[in-house]
Amino acid sequence: MDQVSFFLAATVRMATPLMIAALGLVVSERAGLMNIGVEGTMLAGAFAAFSVSAFTGNYWLGILCAMLAGCVMALLFAFTSITLRTPQIVIGAAVNMLGSGLTAVLFRKLFFDAATGGIQVATFPALPIPLLHAIPILGSILFNHNVIVYIGMLLVPALWFIMNRTSTGLKIIAVGEHPRAADSMGVNVFRTRYAATLFSGVLMGLAGGYLSIAQANSFNVDMTGGKGYIAMAIVVLGKWTPGGVAGGALLFGGANALQMTLQNLGLGIPNNIIMMVPYIVTILAVLTASRHRVIDAGAKGIPYIKV
């Protein structure tokens, strides 16, 4: 029983960064922007959170700076792809390289210490929710996490509501599907696309910050380890809906948690094989998802030009 609830609680913890990043992607992709720079944006967030937390000892300030860093990376992407109309895939790849290279250099320069291998920083503590965490089993799975996990949980219904029940959501879908039609109805296509991209950058930064100062208490070079790409797969799997993305993130979180649990159990399976589990799940999930008809934005990746 302990193993099971440990596994499920770990699933939630592992799913959170994937889900937050994927939710950000949902917003930008539905607005018509294919930002493959998630990985680099998350790294920027992770490093910003870590370094600010290290210097100030304040993890709240750290996570705020993570979101700001994500926003800056997204601004770079938005300016080049929306205003300059540079191919989005190229810019996304550049953002990834920039995020990886810049954080690695700064980390080595500012923090690396050959003796200790790195420093540890103030991190978000677990914040059991009064009463709810005492519920047997469920309490430890859902209500005994740090605050960012809760934020992630609340983001799912919030984004669903925004996308489906507000005029902002309609505008986002409209500029992603048929920007000229949106323009003809008085929607400011550029402003909407910028806003969607910057918002998605904030969430990617938050997801990155979670990795360094909520899940871990340190920064490693390239510590995202492909989580940005998995988030992109989750968006496809979740069919560009917040609820679907939450489900997809739990699946991948579960695969990660399973890998950890299997290692804990010590079944004698070689670790290398166990560590493959999340990646195999990625491939299988994307294969199944691509067999269904998807509701991707019609004008994704295409810059809008006002005649």
Binding site: S167, T168, L170, A174, A181, A182, S184, M185, G298
Partner: peptide, 22 residues
């Protein structure tokens, strides 16, 4: 100039003032 993924009503009131935020 219609958004296929939105409903008739959503298309009609896209960006219309009286629709409000929610």
């Amino acid at each position: 100039m219609l958004i296929p993924q939105l409903t008739v009503t959503q298309n009609i009131f896209l960006c219309a003032k009286e629709a409000g935020f929610v």
